[in-house]
Design a protein around this nucleic acid. Structure first.
Lengths: 200, 200
DNA sequence: AGTTTTTTTAATCAATTGATTAAAAAAACT
DNA sequence: AGTTTTTTTAATCAATTGATTAAAAAAACT
């Protein structure tokens, strides 16, 4: 495990920024986590802000990358895509449960970070998935419904429980392991629910 | 508008804490927002932490209070309750769009705040709504599904778009007004989707 | 009207935080 | 082996932040 100092800092910064957000994170926290001298943060990354922007950009990329493939793939049909998107998201969120709340909380004060990812908008809006959704809504006589609602629903059913995990755990008096079992139950349920919304 | 100084501080604190979170908020921000002298925060509330805990407690109360009535009301049936809960939530979130992300972000670092509201767990778990949900799942041969999933779904479909509003606005290139129109569309759609999940 | 209590103010302080500095150590180059 | 460049270190600094202080002003009490 011979990580360079620069890599050590990045890894540590990702972890701590995800947990504490930008203003809750001290550069000393990152240095401690990385096991390096505090001044190295400025030597390698100039200042806290730059390091954060790097982590923010990477995290946005991570958030979208696990589903981009499924969105644009023309060889799968709508039902397959729904399954793949939800599965890929659950896998990714299981590995990085802090990403959604981190991203959405930071985007509140700095929405511009997303503008730099404007390419994603293009990908999403012209995706095979979007077209297939529109066609399905036509077939099911639901043309009054903006297909974007369905995308929000997939995200809401998949992502929200991770963001609300403290509340869910407290309300149901369950531990982390039991929470993850709850999430696994949803792996098959969410696609079924989405299917009901666009049923032929 | 003869608010006392104490009230002015509370109002300002709620606003700023909701926007910036605990660590992103300086006591000077609150004082400026309230139009009062900085030292008055300590005079009236002793320190930043106490003021925050007060705002946190109130905000949790607000988050749950708009739906508590509907949960325990025994004179309405399940379908009516779903409608009322979603409507009440949308009204409340429209008035205070920052509450969910504020609460869930702060609960990540301090879940204990919720333990102080443990009474809510009792209310939820023994509520008329919960019982009606269980009965409906029985009637529809879905006894393998924990009814709590449906509650998470209602929240996910209702609350998540508010939390994700920066992303939704950017992805669809819409302004605040258009975002609220998007939310209003969901007012009738969400109950329909939920009904599909528990359809007889 | 005088006295006491409460509220407010501007200045100041102690601690913290992001950042800088100068020197030492290590690596790379000749 | 000597020189140059890069990396690391511990100390220090400048700015910021939550909090305190002492005095003035206002309100309440007698």
């Amino acid at each position: 495990m011979d990580q360079s100092t620069e890599e050590k800092i990045k890894t540590a910064a990702r972890k701590i920024f995800h947990e504490k957000g930008y203003s809750g994170t001290r550069t000393r926290d990152i240095a401690e986590e990385a096991g390096i001298n505090l001044a190295l943060l400025n030597y390698y990354f100039r200042n806290k802000k730059r390091l954060f922007e790097l982590v923010m950009s990477d995290s946005l990329e991570d958030f979208f990358s696990s589903i981009r493939g499924a969105f644009v793939d023309t060889s799968t049909d709508l039902d397959q895509k729904i399954q793949i998107i939800i599965n890929n998201y659950l896998d990714q969120l299981t590995a990085n449960p802090n990403i959604p709340i981190f991203l959405l909380n930071e985007l509140r004060s700095n929405p511009d970070a997303l503008v730099k990812k404007s390419e994603l908008r293009g990908v999403l809006n012209s995706s095979s998935f979007m077209q297939q959704l529109e066609e399905r809504l036509k077939e099911t006589k639901q043309t009054g419904i903006n297909p974007f609602h369905l995308i929000v629903n997939i995200l809401g059913l998949t992502v929200f429980p991770f963001m609300a995990s403290p509340m869910i755990k407290e309300m149901r008096q369950i531990n982390d392991e039991q929470f993850m079992a709850f999430i696994e139950e949803r792996r098959t349920l969410i696609p079924q629910w989405i299917q009901l919304m666009i049923k032929k």
